[in-house]
């Protein structure tokens, strides 16, 4: 079943700024889709229109085949049955943790409500913290409470708006794995807005890349990483070489170039090899798993090559393509 169906969605803010250009997207039930792009690309707007927090200017959104946003009218957010996890938690500061989590459980008998709250808090790894006030929690705990609050009413769709961005690196990955586990276990459909390549690549079944309000590419993480349609998409997911068509054959790059004529090749796809195009190592950076060598080719172009051992700056080397992985 299609959980989210977005058709021709456009949004112009008061004042004339266009945030979305005729966006089409279909998300199946249980699918986790990352929405990526630079800040200001419209990814948060897209999420907010799906939530009903913003009206659309054109186009329609349907959730589980029921239209919720269209020119004819909208279903108010509170009746959409979507849950949302906000960037800065948006917890209610005057309520204790358990009351925050119970906020969306209106209409349930008290005993069920309590059971549901403690279950939700247990799921996010915070059993026994129900009596705390929000200001007594750490940042990671707060985001876990926000998650419990969103999941407690068992929504069929969860919208996550940069849920990890206020956390430090170590907490990020732990919480990311937890969220993913919970969403998968319940088969919840999710739209996950992030500007971090790592989140999008590890979390999502598919990613949507937005550029200036336009969908530029939709696909599985592997496809987006290795076969980006443009430099913009390629750069979203990591460093990339844009290799001009003039030297592509000599490097052994195959396949069709990206829209602007250059071939997009990841640094890992290039190797130092005597049988390649010659150049000089201009700089190197250590990056934990290996080195990144910056090489000035004899043609005048600069390329990045990932190497396992430390390259010596100033030495002459040859560069060529490892295999046939280039742009589409």
């Amino acid at each position: 079943m299609t959980a989210v169906q977005i058709q021709g969605l456009g949004k112009v803010y008061r004042g004339g700024t266009r945030a979305l250009h005729s966006v089409d997207l279909q998300v199946s039930e249980g699918e986790i889709v990352a929405v990526v792009g630079e800040s200001g690309c419209g990814k948060s707007t897209l999420l907010r229109v799906v939530a009903g927090l913003e009206d659309a200017t054109e186009g329609a959104v349907a959730l589980f085949e029921q239209t919720v946003t269209s020119p004819a009218g909208t279903v108010p957010t509170e009746r959409r049955g979507v849950a949302m996890v906000f960037q800065d938690h948006a917890l209610f500061p005057h309520l204790r943790v358990h009351a925050n989590v119970a906020f969306g459980l209106r209409g349930l008998p008290r005993s069920q409500k309590q059971a549901r709250v403690s279950e939700a808090l247990g799921l996010v790894g915070l059993p026994g913290l129900g009596d705390r006030y929000i200001h007594e929690l750490s940042g990671g705990q707060r985001q876990r409470v926000a998650l419990a609050r969103a999941l407690a009413p068992t929504p069929r769709i969860v919208l996550l708006d940069e849920p990890l961005s206020s956390l430090d690196e170590r907490l990020r990955s732990a919480l990311r794995d937890d969220i993913l586990r919970l969403l998968r276990a319940r088969g919840t459909t999710a739209l996950w807005v992030t500007h971090r390549a790592e989140d999008a690549l590890t979390v999502a079944d598919r990613s949507v890349v937005l550029e200036s309000g336009l969908v530029v590419q939709v696909g599985a993480p592997e496809a987006l990483y290795h076969r980006p349609v443009s430099r913009y998409v390629a750069r979203m997911f990591g460093p990339v070489n844009a290799i001009p068509a003039s030297i592509a054959p000599r490097l052994g790059v195959e396949g069709a170039p990206a829209a602007d004529g250059a071939h997009l090749v990841r640094p890992e796809a290039l190797v130092l090899h005597p049988d390649g195009l010659f150049g000089v190592i201009a700089a190197r950076r250590y990056r934990g798993t290996g080195y990144m060598a910056e090489i000035t080719l004899d043609s005048g172009d600069t390329v990045l090559v990932a190497t396992a051992s430390a390259p010596t700056v100033g030495t002459a080397v040859g560069v060529r393509c490892r295999s046939i992985t280039s742009a589409s």
Partner: peptide, 22 residues
């Protein structure tokens, strides 16, 4: 792992808003 989904309290999607509700 106990799943919340075992209890049935599903959000339902409501009707479009009337002008007053909107």
């Amino acid at each position: 792992m106990a799943l919340i989904a075992t209890t049935t309290h599903r959000y339902e999607i409501g009707p479009m808003a009337s002008w007053w509700r909107h």
